[in-house]
Write a protein that binds this DNA or RNA. Structure first.
Length: 549
RNA sequence: GGGCUCGUGGCCUAGUCUGGAUAAGGCACCGUCCUUCUAAGUCGGUGAUCGUGGGUCCGAAUCCCACCGAGCCCGCCA
C-alpha cells in the first residue's frame, strides 16, 4: 500500500463539509489548463439551494489548507491552485527520509504473476514478447505497491506442439547437434509431413505414450524443450525480464494431479456416451472436455491442476494471455471459483496480436520477427547515435537504450489494441519513445552533476514551468494507484512521457547553475524530485536510465 | 449464425470504465532556434464530420440501440 498525503482526498473532505455528496471522481487534477486541482460541481447547481453561497464556503474552507495557495470559483467549478513550495517540500522530504516518493509498506499478500508461458517451439518473437513485457511490468508495479510477487513461467512440455517438435527432430535431425536451428527446421518439416500424410497419427500416438507416463519420452521432450527455453530466457534477460519459477506442465501428469482434478470435479462431470470421455457442461457456454476417451488429460485439465497449485501458494494470481484465450479465462473462473469454491483472486490480462503489414506472424510459416533481431538492430542504431555524438561507441549504454526502446514501443499501447509492427516505428528514437524519456533524464543528471548539492531556497521568481512540473510530479502516486487498480502499466507509460515533456519545457525555461542560491537551490530540489520519480517509474516500465547518452 | 474486441487529422497514440471548461500528444510535411546546464531537443504552422445513423441528457469521443469495417473465439488442439 502507498503512503503519501492524499491532497485530493483532503480537499474533498473539506468540500464535503458543505456538500456531503461530493464523489471521488469530482475532485481531480485538472486535465485542462484552468487550475491544478478542480472540483467539478455542475450537477449540484440544479439541486442545491443557495448554491453560489455554498461554493463560496467551499472555497474559503479549502483556501485554509496549508498546501493550497489560492482558490477560485469559476462557473460550477472550484479551481484550486497549490502552493508549489509546500508540495515540493513534501516530495523532497519523502525522498530524503524514505528514499522514494510515494513511500509504501509491505503487504503480507502473496501474488503470482504468470506471463510469457509461450510453448518452447522456437525463439520468442515480437508477438509473444508483448505478453512478457506487459507481465513483467505488472509484476514490478505490484512489487512497487508493496506486495510479495513471484514471476512464473508455465512451461508447456506435454502438448501436441511440443511432441511435434520432438518428432520433427527425431525424424529429420536425429543424431545432429541439438540446436534451436535444427529443432526449428524439424518443426517446420514435420508439419509439412503431416500434411503430406494427411494424418497426425504419429504425434497422436506419442501423446498417448506421453500421458501414460513413458519416462524415457518425457525426459527426451523435456531436454528438447529446455534447449529452446534457454534461448527464450536469454532473449528476455536482455529486456530485464526474469522469472522466479518455472513450472513444467508434465509434472501435473506424472504426479497424478490431473487425475486428482477429475476426482475433485467428479460431481460436475458428465460422460460422453460414445467413448466415456468426460466433460463439464458450462451454462451459457459449451461442453468443456477434461478427459479424452482414451483417459488422457487436456490443456484445461492441466491448467486447473496448475491453478490449484498456485492457489495453494498465493493469495492472488494474475495471468497474462493472448486475446484468443478470453474464453479460457471465463472457463477457468467458472471452474476454480464456482465449481471448486476457491476464493483466491484471479485476474486475467488479455492483449491483442502484433501483426505485420503483410499479415500475421507465424513461427511455422517463418513470418515471425524474432525479438533478438529487433534488439540487435536497436543496439546497432543506438551505437551509431552515440558514436555520432561522442566519436566512440558505448556498448553498455547502447544496450540500455535498445532494451528500453523495445519495451516502451510495446508497453505504451493499450493491450486491447492490435499493434502493427513497423521497423521504422520500432527503431524510432524521437518523439514518444523511451530514448526521449532517457534523454530528458540525462539532461537532469547533467545539471545535478554541475550544480552542487543544493540548500535553502525561496519562492522568488518562480516560473510557470517550475510550478507545472512540481504539480505533475505530485500526480505520480495517483497514477501508480490507477495503474495498480486496473493492472494497466500503460497508464504509467503515458504519465512518464508527459512528465518528461514537462521537464523538457522546464529545462528550456529555467536555468540552474548560473542562478543565485535562492533560485538555484529550489531548481536543484525540483530536479532531484524529478530524477527520483523518473527512476522509480522507469524501473516499473523497464526503462534503464543513464547519466550520459 | 452466436459471443468478445478494436475503429479518434495522411500515419501512430492518449482520452472512453467514472459524460462536462477550446478533442491532447507524437510521426511525416513546411518554417524557427546551437559563443547559454546534452539539438535523441525547442518554438511556430498545415491538418479531425472522434466509423455511420439514430437515441438519452442542460451537455456525448465517452452512455444506449442499430448498422458498416477489421480481428479473435465458438475443438476429445493449446
Amino acid at each position: 500500500m502507498l503512503l503519501f498525503q492524499d491532497l485530493l482526498e483532503i480537499i474533498r473532505s473539506e468540500a464535503k463539509k458543505t456538500l456531503s455528496g461530493i464523489e471521488e471522481k469530482e475532485v481531480i487534477f485538472d486535465p485542462t489548463e484552468h487550475a491544478h486541482i478542480t472540483l467539478r460541481l455542475i450537477k449540484y447547481g440544479k439541486t442545491e439551494t443557495n448554491f453560489d453561497g455554498k461554493l463560496d464556503k467551499i472555497c474559503s474552507d479549502i483556501e485554509k489548507l496549508g498546501f493550497v495557495s489560492s482558490v477560485k470559483k469559476e462557473g460550477y467549478y472550484v479551481n484550486v491552485y497549490l502552493n508549489p513550495i509546500a508540495i515540493l517540500n513534501t516530495i523532497s522530504e519523502s525522498i530524503h527520509t524514505a528514499g522514494i516518493f510515494p513511500d509504501s509498506f509491505q503487504d503480507p499478500e502473496r501474488v503470482s504473476v504468470e506471463h510469457t508461458s509461450t510453448n518452447p517451439t522456437g525463439p520468442i518473437h515480437m508477438g509473444r514478447v508483448r505478453n512478457s513485457v506487459i507481465g513483467d511490468s505488472v509484476a514490478k508495479l505490484i512489487e512497487r505497491y508493496g506486495y510479495r510477487v513471484t514471476k512464473q513461467y508455465y512451461v508447456n512440455d506435454s502438448g501436441k506442439q511440443m511432441l511435434s517438435l520432438y518428432l520433427g527432430y527425431e525424424k529429420f535431425h536425429k543424431g545432429d547437434e541439438l540446436t534451436v536451428a535444427n529443432l526449428l527446421d524439424g518443426y517446420v518439416k514435420i508439419y509439412n509431413y503431416f500434411e503430406e500424410q494427411k494424418s497426425e497419427r504419429e504425434v497422436e500416438d506419442l501423446m498417448e505414450r506421453y500421458e501414460r507416463g513413458d519416462g524415457e519420452l518425457i525426459k527426451n521432450v523435456r531436454e528438447i524443450a529446455s534447449v529452446v527455453l534457454e534461448s527464450i530466457i536469454k532473449d528476455l534477460e536482455k529486456l530485464d525480464i526474469k522469472f522466479d519459477e518455472f513450472t513444467w506442465e508434465s509434472e501435473f501428469i506424472t504426479s497424478g494431479e490431473t487425475k486428482e482434478v477429475i476426482r475433485k470435479l467428479s460431481e460436475n462431470l458428465e460422460t460422453d456416451e460414445k467413448d466415456g470421455a468426460k466433460y463439464i457442461d458450462i451454462p451459457n457456454l459449451r461442453k468443456i472436455y477434461l478427459e479424452r476417451g482414451n483417459g488422457t488429460s487436456l490443456y484445461v485439465t492441466r491448467d486447473i491442476a496448475y491453478h490449484m497449485y498456485k492457489f495453494s501458494q498465493y493469495d492472488r494470481c494474475i495471468i497474462v494471455l493472448g486475446e484468443d484465450h478470453k474464453e479460457h479465462g471465463k472457463i477457468m473462473n467458472f471452474i476454480m471459483h464456482t465449481l471448486l469454491g476457491y476464493e483466491n483472486q484471479m485476474d486475467f490480462i488479455f492483449y491483442g496480436y502484433v501483426n505485420l503489414e503483410s499479415g500475421k506472424m507465424s513461427t511455422r510459416k517463418g513470418t515471425s520477427i524474432p525479438v533478438s533481431e529487433v534488439y540487435n538492430k536497436l543496439v546497432e542504431k543506438a551505437s551509431q547515435e552515440i558514436e555520432k555524438r561522442y566519436g566512440s561507441s558505448d556498448k553498455s549504454t547502447a544496450e540500455k537504450i535498445a532494451s528500453s526502446a523495445l519495451r516502451f514501443y510495446i508497453l505504451r499501447i493499450n493491450p486491447s489494441k492490435p499493434i502493427t509492427f513497423r521497423w521504422e516505428d520500432a527503431l524510432d528514437f524521437n518523439g514518444e519513445t523511451a530514448p526521449f524519456i532517457m534523454y530528458s533524464y540525462t539532461r537532469a543528471s547533467s545539471i545535478l552533476e554541475k550544480s552542487g548539492s543544493g540548500g535553502n531556497f525561496t519562492e522568488e521568481d518562480m516560473n510557470k514551468e517550475e510550478i507545472d512540473l512540481i504539480v505533475h510530479l505530485y500526480e505520480y502516486p495517483y497514477k501508480l494507484k490507477e495503474a495498480f487498480n486496473s493492472l494497466k502499466p500503460e497508464v504509467l507509460a503515458t504519465y512518464l512521457l508527459s512528465l518528461s515533456k514537462k521537464f523538457t519545457s522546464f529545462y528550456e525555461n529555467s536555468r540552474v547553475i548560473d542562478q543565485k542560491d535562492e533560485i538555484k537551490n529550489r531548481r536543484i530540489a525540483i530536479i532531484k524530485s524529478y530524477t527520483s520519480i523518473v527512476q522509480d517509474c522507469s524501473s516499473i516500465l523497464g526503462i534503464k536510465n543513464v547519466n550520459k547518452m
